[in-house]
Design a binder for these strands. Structure first.
Length: 567
RNA sequence: CGCGGGAUGGAGCAGUCCGGUAGCUCGUCAGGCUCAUAACCUGAAGGUCGUGAGGUUCAAAUCCCACUCCCGCACCCA
């Protein structure tokens, strides 16, 4: 049987992530993982914090902490936020783990053995006052082409020309501002990507028809422009040390070890229960594994070119990705989420405002699958109020309350399905089939449209069956209608669980089905809709499932997070 | 000519790969119902698909060409 390996792009360690990070990789990956588990598949869902690199060092510096303490703290913060969002990682690891260090060094050795690594001496800028080498982008100075005074060492943002740090006039450190800089020779390792070109091109070709356009177009662009040898080491202290003589005090480039952490995190996972878990079976010569990666578009070059190149070059049968689900950006009122401008809402803030399912639902209904999509509080409120409150919440509420008040708080007995019921079930069946198909294909927007339509069918049926009228003339028939409606509620919990797990749980509790699980329905719903038998007691809700977001709340949120209530 | 992505009723989207005169959600208007969170259900109005009295075709939102506008690629950040 196929086993499903799922990874989400690793969130970077240097701070709490915003909604876009959540909606653009971790959350859709979670929905897919949950869906497959409900279908009874063997799933391993892996994520981790990406902890190396200069930004982590600088963020730690700013907080006056040593990098390791900083990372440990930030890792815990992020981990707890994701738990609160009910992200169902089998393991949420750390790229600074010993497992990752070991694997990264292993790959480096293999690549050296196979002749894909070259050693070169390059000139690096060293800041005497900072006591460290500075990456290109942390050197600022005057652009020799246009005279712009705040040009960075890698590119001038004014004239967009690509620069070398040594081109800059009056260079200084972006960290301290010190102009006491020296150019030093430094030995580094380069990954010979050009040697991998044909193999990578074949790899992309192989998947071209299947993968999203945003993925293949970015990958092809890189190939078309020609691959260059890529430096995979850095003059930093924080990171995975390079297992080679003469490279003491140097570490791997963060983008070299980060994807390897997918494997590393799996090893971390296995180590917690070595008796029953075998990380290698998921990654090495794993022919029965289907591997899906989730990421936003900025990550695509690393996952279509760099990481596969590493795996190919090892010469070992490491598992390569089968499907890449790539996303565009989620924007905030059409613009970028911005820390410094206080634009946008961060994951911790989001949880302080509303229950996780509100966010999960909106983000999945508006996933930037084909184009960037824009978050606005008005849209958020409208979607939550309509779909979750009026359509789903109201359906659950009206059925439970009516049954309890007219008959009693248990599934009523009597009556047989009529043509109306059979037609309703057929409609549901078709929609559930489509919904299942969309989830399997990771077509999330379409899936959510379908899920909503499934909820609407319930209300539709109630209007057609009108149990509140029927009960006066034919109590048996009314009992049958409500029995079916109660079973539909249960079905909704199962179908909604991948998207809004907390709500599914609430519904199961209302139905006294707390440990019943969420096994995905079969194609034929006949049996499924008779799961709850006559006499099965349920709880009458004191409150509806959800509460609406008022216009005043929208105004308030906009004021606090930088949005426009009219948009 | 830097790269990439967009442009479809008031708003947000689908349809474009495999051409055959537009579909969904919200909003608006009208009606139905009264079990339910003034919720639910039904119907209607509203677009000729960025521009070019361009090209191909019996036929184009859908293929080809030219142009225009918008958004990312620049601190923070994905």
């Amino acid at each position: 049987m196929t086993r499903y390996l799922i990874t989400s792009a690793l969130p970077y360690i240097n701070g709490i992530k915003h909604l876009g990070n959540l909606g653009g990789s971790m959350l859709p990956a979670d929905v897919y993982a949950r869906f497959l588990r409900q279908k009874g598949e063997d799933v391993l869902f892996i994520c981790a914090t990406d902890e190396h690199g200069t930004p982590a060092e600088l963020a730690a510096l700013e907080k006056n902490q040593d990098v390791e303490t900083f990372c440990t703290e930030q890792h815990e913060i992020q981990k707890s936020i994701y738990q609160r969002f009910h992200l169902s990682f089998d393991h949420f690891g750390r790229s600074s783990s010993s497992q990752n260090a070991e694997l990264t060094q292993h790959f480096c050795k293999k690549l050296m053995e196979n002749g894909f690594i070259e050693e070169r001496t390059i000139k690096q800028v060293y800041s005497v006052d900072d006591g460290r080498f500075l990456p290109d982008r942390y050197i600022v100075g005057t652009c020799p082409h246009c005279g712009y005074e705040a040009a960075r060492g890698d590119q001038c943002e004014n004239c967009t020309r690509v620069l070398d740090p040594t081109d800059l006039i009056n260079p200084r450190s972006a960290v301290s501002g010190s102009s006491n800089l020296e150019i030093k020779d430094s030995k580094h390792l380069f990954l010979n990507l050009p040697a991998m070109e044909s193999k990578l091109a074949a790899f992309i070709d192989e998947h071209e028809a299947e993968w999203p356009i945003v993925v293949t177009s970015i990958a092809r662009k890189w190939l078309k422009e020609g691959l260059r040898e890529r430096c995979i080491t850095r003059d930093l202290k924080w990171g995975i040390s390079v297992p080679k003589e003469g490279f003491e005090g140097k570490v791997f480039y963060v983008w070299f070890d980060a994807p390897i952490e997918y494997i590393g995190a799996t090893a971390e996972w296995a180590e917690k229960d070595p008796e029953h878990r075998d990380w290698k079976s998921w990654w090495y010569d794993a022919k029965d594994v289907r591997y899906t990666e989730f990421m936003a578009k900025d990550n695509i070059p690393f996952h279509t070119i760099m990481f596969p190149a590493t795996l190919f070059a090892s010469g070992e049968p490491w598992k390569k990705v089968d499907y890449i689900k790539g996303f565009n950006w989620l924007t905030f009122y059409g613009g970028k989420f911005s820390t410094s401008q206080k634009r946008g809402i961060f994951t911790n803030q989001a949880l302080d405002e509303f229950q996780p399912d509100f966010w999960r639902y909106w983000l999945m209904a508006n996933t930037p699958e084909n184009a960037d999509s824009s978050f606005t509080f008005s849209s958020f409120a409208a979607t939550i109020n309509k779909d979750l409150n009026d359509v789903l919440g109201n359906f659950v509420n009206r059925v439970l309350k009516m049954t309890a008040s007219k008959i009693g708080a248990a599934v009523p007995a009597g009556g047989e399905w009529t043509a109306v019921e059979k037609e309703f079930i057929q409609t549901l069946q078709k929609r559930v089939t489509d919904y299942t198909k969309y989830l399997s294909e990771m077509e999330f927007r379409k899936a959510l449209t379908e899920l909503r339509a499934i909820w609407v069918e319930g209300n539709n049926y109630l209007t057609a069956a009108a149990p509140w009228t029927v009960i006066k003339e034919d109590p048996e028939k009314a009992a049958m209608i409500l029995r079916l409606a109660l079973n539909v509620i249960r079905l909704y919990a199962v179908l909604s669980a991948p998207i809004i797990p907390e709500t599914a749980e609430k519904i199961q509790k209302l139905l006294n089905l707390e440990n019943a699980g969420y096994a995905w329905p079969k194609a034929d719903l006949t049996e499924e809709l008779q799961t709850l038998k006559a006499g099965h007691a349920f709880n009458v809700p004191e409150q509806p499932l959800f509460q609406k977001i008022t216009p005043e709340a929208v105004t308030d949120l906009c004021a606090r997070y930088g949005g426009n209530p009219d948009e």
